[in-house]
Write a protein that binds this DNA or RNA. Structure first.
Length: 278
DNA sequence: CTCAGTGTTCAGTG
DNA sequence: TCACTGAACACTGA
C-alpha cells in the first residue's frame, strides 16, 4: 500500500495503537531480505521493553521515536502495510477479493504486543519492504537523501520552479525521484500530470512558469485530498484518472470520455491522456 | 504458464 | 561527477 497517502495512513494507525505504550513482546519473522543490516532476533530484542513516544513519516519511510536508541525504520515497498487485529487492510488498486482478517496476518514480518493489550504487525507479501535500525533516522540515509515531502515541506512556487529548472529528465522521472519529491509514486505522478495537463515525457527544465506552478498546485492538492480521505480509494474524487487508469485493452477513457493511453516513461507504466496533456 | 506490478537499487552509459 | 535508463530483486495474483 505504498505511496505517501497510504504510508501516512499507516503512520496514523501505528500512532493510534503504539504511541505512549511499551512493547512487551516482539516477534520477528526469519527473513534476511526484509531485515536490512540487522538480524530479525536482534531487532526484536531492541524493541522489547521500549516505550513508543511517537510515529513519524517522511516520504514513504516511517519510524518510531522510542525512549532509547536506536529507532526502528520501516519502508513498505510495493505491498507492505501495518495491520491491527479486527481491522480490514486497505485494498490494493482494484482488488476484487474479500479482505483477509486472519491474525497474525499472512506475510507478517514483525508483530508487536503492547502493555495495554494492543497489537501491531507489519506485512510484506513480496518481500520488497525493508525494516532497519538507525540511531537518528532523519539525520541518516535513506531519509537524509530524500527531497521535500509535499505534505510536510512543499517549497513555495519560486523555489519549486527553480528546483524543476535544474532537472533535465522527464517530468515523470523527476516526480518519481525520491530525492526530488519524497513520497510520490506511480499513481500519484500520473494523477498530478493529468490534472496539471502536462505530457509526462516533457523535460522538467523546459516548463514555462505557469506550467510549473500548475504542477506544484496539483502535487499539493492531489496528495492533500488523498490524505484527507485516509488513502481510501473509494473516496477519491470521481473525476480522478486513478479510477480509470487500469481499463482493459486500450478502451479506457476518462470521466469525460477522453482516451487513456499507456506508455513506458522512466521505466514505469504510465497512464496519460494525450488529448489534454501537452 | 506467463507477466505485470502503488518500489528501490545498482551497473552501465552519456 | 552528475544524471538518466533499464535490469534485477522476489513473489503474488490475474
Amino acid at each position: 500500500m505504498p505511496e505517501l497517502p497510504e504510508v501516512e495512513r499507516g503512520r496514523r494507525l501505528a500512532e493510534r495503537v503504539a504511541a505512549g505504550r511499551t512493547v512487551v513482546a516482539a516477534t520477528a519473522a526469519d527473513d534476511r531480505i526484509v531485515y536490512e543490516g540487522v538480524a530479525p532476533r536482534a531487532f526484536a530484542r531492541r524493541l522489547t521493553g521500549a516505550r513508543v513516544l511517537a510515529v513519524q513519516r517522511r516520504g514513504k519511510h516511517l519510524w518510531f521515536e522510542l525512549d532509547r536508541r536506536p529507532w526502528p525504520l520501516f519502508h513498505f515497498g510495493m505491498t507492505g502495510a501495518f495491520r491491527v487485529p479486527d481491522e480490514d487492510p486497505l485494498p490494493l488498486a482494484s482488488s476484487p477479493k474479500r479482505p483477509d482478517r486472519s491474525w497474525p496476518p499472512r506475510f507478517a514480518k514483525i508483530r508487536l504486543a503492547f502493555d495495554d493489550g494492543g497489537e501491531l504487525a507489519m506485512t510484506s507479501a513480496r518481500r520488497l519492504a525493508r525494516i532497519r535500525l538507525r540511531e537518528d533516522p532523519p539525520g541518516e540515509p535513506p531519509i537524509a537523501a530524500l527531497g521535500f515531502d509535499p505534505l510536510l515541506d512543499l517549497p513555495g512556487p519560486a523555489a519549486f520552479r527553480a528546483a524543476l529548472a535544474r532537472r533535465t529528465g522527464t517530468l515523470k522521472g523527476v516526480l518519481l525521484d525520491q530525492g526530488f519529491a519524497a513520497g510520490v509514486g506511480n499513481w500519484i505522478a500520473d494523477e498530478v500530470l493529468y490534472q496539471a495537463r502536462l505530457d509526462p515525457r516533457r523535460r522538467a527544465g523546459d516548463l514555462a512558469p505557469a506550467e510549473a506552478n500548475r504542477l506544484r498546485a496539483r502535487l499539493r492538492s492531489v496528495i492533500e485530498r488523498a490524505v484527507a480521505v485516509d488513502a481510501d480509494k473509494a473516496r477519491f474524487p470521481r473525476t480522478w484518472l486513478f479510477h480509470r487508469r487500469w481499463g482493459k485493452n486500450g478502451d479506457a477513457t476518462t470521466h469525460r470520455g477522453e482516451r487513456i493511453e499507456h506508455v513506458t516513461v522512466a521505466g514505469r507504466t504510465t497512464a496519460w491522456v494525450p488529448e489534454v496533456q501537452r
